[in-house]
Design a binder for these strands. Structure first.
Length: 272
DNA sequence: AGCCAGGAAGTCC
DNA sequence: GGACTTCATGGC
C-alpha cells in the first residue's frame, strides 16, 4: 500500500475525461486501473490517495503514469486572468491530469474514438481487452490487459465489427497489419524518438489515422503536451469563445493540458 | 425521426 | 487544396 497527498488529481474526473477507457469503477473515487502491463487499485478521499501497490512499483510506474512530476497548480496559475472561460474550465476540471499511457493502447483507442461517443468507445475498447487481452489476477480480482498488436493481428474485420466498431473495424485491421509489418517495437521506438512534426507525419501515414487522432496519440501516447487535438467539442468551444483564435503561443509547452480542461468542461456543460 | 458522437477516406473540381 | 459525401452504430 502506498499513501500520498496529491493535489490536482481527481480519479473521478480523470475517469470521465475521455482519455482512457479501461479503468474499472469500483466505487466513488475508487478504481481498478490496468495500464502498461500492470494493474493497481486507487482510492481517493479528498487529496489523499491510496494505491494498492508497493513503494517500488509506485515510484517505477504509477508516479509516472499519473504524471506526478508535472506541476498542474503552476499551469492553472499561468492562465490569462482575463480569460474567464478558460479559468472556469480549469477550475472545474482541476483534478484532470494527462496520463502517460501505453502508446499502442492510445493509438487503438483513439482510432476507435473517431465520430464516436465515449460510452461506446469504452464498450468497444473493453471488448477488445476481454476478447484478445490476457485475463490476469490481482488479489481477489481479475482484469484484462490491453491486447498486443500481435494479439489483435489474429482478429478479422468481422470480429471487430461484432464489438460495435462499425466502419472503423476495417481501419483497425489495416492499422494492426501495418504496425505488425514494421515490427511494433521498432516502429514504436522510431515514433517515440520523433519530434512532433515527424510524429504527426508517421501517424497520419497510417490508414484511418487523420490529424485529430494523430494529435491525441501525440498528447496521450507520446506525452507531447503541446499537442492540441481539435474535435467536435473543441471546435465548437473555439468558435463560441475564441472567435479571434486561441493563443497557443502563450501556453507553449502545456497547451494539451488546457485542451483537456476545455474538453472536460464542455462535456459537463453539455450534459446539464 | 433525425442529429450527434474526441473524424477520416474517397471523390469531385 | 478545399468542399462534399460516405462510412456503422447507439443514444437521445
Amino acid at each position: 500500500m502506498v499513501e500520498r497527498h496529491i493535489s490536482c488529481l481527481d480519479l473521478d474526473q480523470i475517469a470521465a475525461s475521455g482519455q482512457c477507457f479501461t479503468w474499472q469503477r469500483l466505487g466513488e473515487g475508487h478504481y481498478g486501473i490496468p495500464a502498461r502491463g500492470s494493474y493497481v487499485e486507487a482510492e481517493q478521499r479528498g487529496e489523499r490517495l491510496v494505491f494498492s501497490c508497493g513503494e517500488t512499483e509506485f515510484e517505477a510506474l504509477w508516479a509516472d503514469y499519473f504524471d506526478l512530476s508535472t506541476d498542474y497548480e503552476a499551469i492553472q496559475a499561468a492562465i490569462d486572468p482575463a480569460d474567464g472561460y478558460l479559468r472556469a474550465a480549469a477550475r472545474y476540471g482541476r483534478g484532470i491530469r494527462v496520463l502517460r499511457q501505453d502508446l499502442w493502447e492510445v493509438l487503438v483507442s483513439f482510432l476507435i474514438s473517431q465520430n464516436n461517443n465515449i460510452g461506446r468507445i469504452t464498450r468497444s475498447v473493453q471488448g477488445l481487452c476481454r476478447r484478445w487481452g490476457e485475463e490476469r489476477r490481482a488479489g481477489s480480482r481479475t482484469y484484462w490487459s490491453f491486447p498486443s498488436p500481435a494479439a489483435l493481428a489474429g482478429a478479422s474485420e468481422s470480429d471487430f465489427a461484432a464489438l460495435g466498431l462499425g466502419y472503423r473495424a476495417r481501419y483497425l485491421v489495416r492499422l494492426t497489419a501495418e504496425v505488425e509489418a514494421a515490427g511494433y517495437e521498432d516502429w514504436a521506438r522510431r515514433l517515440r524518438a520523433a519530434g512532433s512534426e515527424e510524429a504527426m507525419e508517421r501517424l497520419t501515414g497510417l490508414y484511418g489515422v487523420g490529424k485529430k487522432v494523430a494529435q491525441c496519440v501525440c498528447l496521450f501516447g507520446l506525452h507531447q503536451v503541446d499537442a492540441f487535438p481539435v474535435d467536435t467539442h473543441i471546435r465548437r468551444v473555439l468558435e463560441a469563445h475564441y472567435p479571434a483564435g486561441f493563443d497557443l503561443e502563450r501556453y507553449k509547452g502545456y497547451g494539451g493540458i488546457l485542451q483537456q480542461y476545455l474538453f472536460y468542461y464542455d462535456l459537463a456543460v453539455k450534459s446539464r
